[in-house]
Write a protein that binds this DNA or RNA. Sequence first.
DNA 1: ACCTGAACACCGTTCAAGT
DNA 2: ACCTGAACACCGTTCAAGT
Lengths: 226, 226
Amino acid sequence: MRSNTTRRTQRGEPSLSRERIIDAAIALLDTEGEGGLTFRALSERLATGAGAIYWHVANKDDLLNAACDAIVTATLAGVDADSPSGATPQARIRAIGLAMFDTIDAHPWVGAELARASWKMPMVRILESLGRQVGALGVAAPVVGVATTTLLSYILGVAGQNAANAQIARAQQLVRETFLASVASDWAALDADQFPFTRSLAEHLRDHDDRNDFAAGIDLILQGLR
Amino acid sequence: MRSNTTRRTQRGEPSLSRERIIDAAIALLDTEGEGGLTFRALSERLATGAGAIYWHVANKDDLLNAACDAIVTATLAGVDADSPSGATPQARIRAIGLAMFDTIDAHPWVGAELARASWKMPMVRILESLGRQVGALGVAAPVVGVATTTLLSYILGVAGQNAANAQIARAQQLVRETFLASVASDWAALDADQFPFTRSLAEHLRDHDDRNDFAAGIDLILQGLR
DNA sequence: ACCTGAACACCGTTCAAGT
DNA sequence: ACCTGAACACCGTTCAAGT
């Protein structure tokens, strides 16, 4: 790592920088999936040596975290920009959740990274955005914390699952629909005595809408606040 | 992999078997953490060659999944055994959640694996247990599915976070309390204009009880069903 | 200050060869 | 049928040496 004053060869092409590395990492993760991010692949893409990257980035964790944070920051900024100024806190919370859902749909590795990340930056941003809106809900003060962390954990749980599903679908070269169909048939084949509930869910799995279900979960949690 | 008819050298010590491998894997994961499970470490512990393991286990994913499933199965069996027969569905749901919480506290790698696993066996067991109780709640049929998956996602979200925290604490050789204190001071140092909510949470972080907060989240979701 | 690239210490997985 | 262990194709990370 180094100080933040990036220098460039004067008038030349931008030299290697933390930002360029993060951008390249994001491109790699988006096109190749979680397994595609490698210091070797990255250094090839950046036309540099593998070790050079370590001047700008502490290690792979740092890089993954920074890439994740760049995406999350952009997502949350988009929510603020898109929300009508008269929107209720409920509507804003829903919007934050759905924006994260869509982001993880577009970048599954973000979901995996968030699920694995602890209370560091990208997650703190989501916590802060949610917390403010929950605070504006007008519920009793001690409830605000619980409600916010519950929403956050729920979002992270869905994020992790969607990331895992996308990973499997990629490995098997399946589109989402085919993947869901295969899960549904696995579930339908379960023992009828041991897994009656799961079997009953299997029927609804094929034609369900993840995004709607996700939103319904948020609404359910918000409902509990009244 | 091989058929299920495990043979042993007659009257001799039990030879290598899927079960012995899984037990050794669990022991390794518990003592060394997520990074401790290696085919080399495993084969040393089992006094065999690295390749021998592949006769009983498809690959590392399969092994991790099986280890996770063994723990989850035992946990859920314990819940059933411990629940008084007159317990309400709410109490049972709470008990399932708390049992999972305690299990992940004892075996953080289970949390990580669940967060990363898709709709395969260990998760299906949890889904089934929850779904039955939610069904017994007497809510409208279409709500049962949403409520169950919401509870499941919430539990998985918390599981992933706790696993991540445990991982970091292990890497830094910190006990949980010291770790929480360091997060709290990180949060307190955040920009006051940008992160007012997170800063306000920091104060409560030191003396809060994860397990209680977790249970409060479950109650909140259940509350939404009325 | 920043970059190079070989080297180190690992991985998971395979497979010819044994019994 | 089951096990051995060397070999393969990777990893992340370090570091002397360059500019």
